[in-house]
């Protein structure tokens, strides 16, 4: 750049412009002739900054405004859940559509449920990926309520994550047979993006509604297959509760069809997966957990038709109350975490 520096110095000393002589005469002539010229006004200094920050501010508004202006649905608003109960839905998604399973159970006995709160402490498998899970706990709260004038069990299931992220499921179960009437959920995927949805069950139809950061997704109907709609079907967060509704006995077997809404948060597609869980009583054991000592039915939980993950857990259910006392996953050490009843609260 030495040459440029030389050129610059020369330009600074000598303007280098060709001489001009007639400009003042032109100016005078124009003025005498009454010419007026409007020169470009100086722009406010804020404009260049607006050019830089304006699009950024606009983008920020687009992100922030919808999530704050769209009214959330009338759901409990405390933070929560993330994951499931008590098995991993990924495992069942591989289940064949026509997988053979045990005979389906008939109906459940809703009168076996009781109001209260059950706290389940997570039991990590020991796999390094599950470090930290021991600090987590699920809380299942059951109380009486009503839904569209009908008496229901109102059940909330909260997965408490240290980060505050997660999900909360609310279930409205018909009092008499625990059939789901409404399943509402709130998932705080990120602190700023609160998403919520609700599924209403009306006969053989599931009606979906979602509130997403980008806007409200209009309700849509999904017709559940006739085979499922004629009998009992549960939604997956309901699983521990349906255990309460079953009168187990020695060598009892049965299969439960579960509806697993695969919620696509983009709102484009939200298919409903139906899968079967085989339950088989394998024995009776006395189990001690932090909440106390219970006489339990030991139950094997299997997902027929999925060779990799067919046997997924052993369950211990209190023979008196029907409450789940302990869950222990099978399979690889990272296939899921267990949980056990750590407290029963009024």
């Amino acid at each position: 750049m030495r040459r440029w520096n030389e050129v610059r110095s020369r330009l600074r000393q000598d303007d280098g412009a060709p001489s001009t002589s007639g400009v003042w005469q032109r100016i005078e002539a124009s003025r005498r002739g009454g010419a007026t010229i409007t020169l470009t006004p100086e722009r406010p200094r804020i404009l260049p900054r607006l050019g830089l920050y304006g699009p950024m501010a606009l983008a920020l508004l687009v992100l922030l405004i919808p999530s704050r202006t769209i009214p959330p649905p009338s759901l409990p608003s405390y933070p929560v859940p993330d994951w499931s109960w008590p098995f991993l839905p990924q495992a069942v998604l591989a289940q064949g559509a026509r997988a053979p399973h045990l005979p389906a159970i008939g109906s459940l006995d809703g009168s076996r449920l009781q109001s209260g709160r059950w706290v389940y402490k997570w039991i990590p498998s020991g796999h390094p990926a599950q470090e930290g899970l021991s600090r987590m706990a699920d809380t299942v709260t059951i109380r009486r309520g009503s839904h569209r004038g009908e008496p229901v069990w109102l059940v909330t299931q909260r997965v408490g994550l240290a980060s505050g992220k997660g999900r909360l499921d609310s279930l409205y179960l018909r009092l008499s047979d625990l059939r789901p009437l409404r399943h509402a959920l709130v998932a705080s995927i990120l602190d700023r993006f609160r998403r919520a949805g609700a599924i209403d069950f009306e006969g053989d139809t599931m009606r979906w509604q979602f509130v997403l950061p980008g806007g409200f997704i209009p309700p849509r109907d999904t017709v559940v297959t006739a085979a499922i709609s004629t009998g009992y079907a549960a939604v997956w967060p309901e699983f521990p509760l349906l255990l309460n509704g079953i009168q187990f006995a020695k060598n009892w077997t049965g299969a439960v069809p579960m509806l697993l809404p695969s919620i696509d948060w983009s709102g484009r597609d939200s298919p409903v997966h139906v899968y079967w869980i085989d339950l088989r009583v394998t024995g009776r054991e006395r189990v001690t957990v932090p909440a106390g000592t219970f006489d339990c039915w030991r139950i094997s939980e299997r997902i027929p038709g999925n060779e990799d993950r067919e046997a997924i857990a052993d369950l211990w259910v209190d023979s008196r109350s029907g409450a789940l006392v302990r869950e222990r996953p099978r399979g690889s050490s990272n296939s899921g975490h267990g949980r056990e009843l750590s407290a029963i609260l009024p």
Partner: peptide
């Protein structure tokens, strides 16, 4: 004029610029 010349590198444009500035200056 020298500044106008460097910006435009054209004598006519530079002269026109200076002319316009001085005619439009009072307003």
């Amino acid at each position: 004029y020298a500044l106008a010349w460097r910006l435009t590198l054209n004598r006519a444009d530079a002269e026109d610029t200076v002319h316009d500035v001085f005619v439009g200056l009072p307003r």
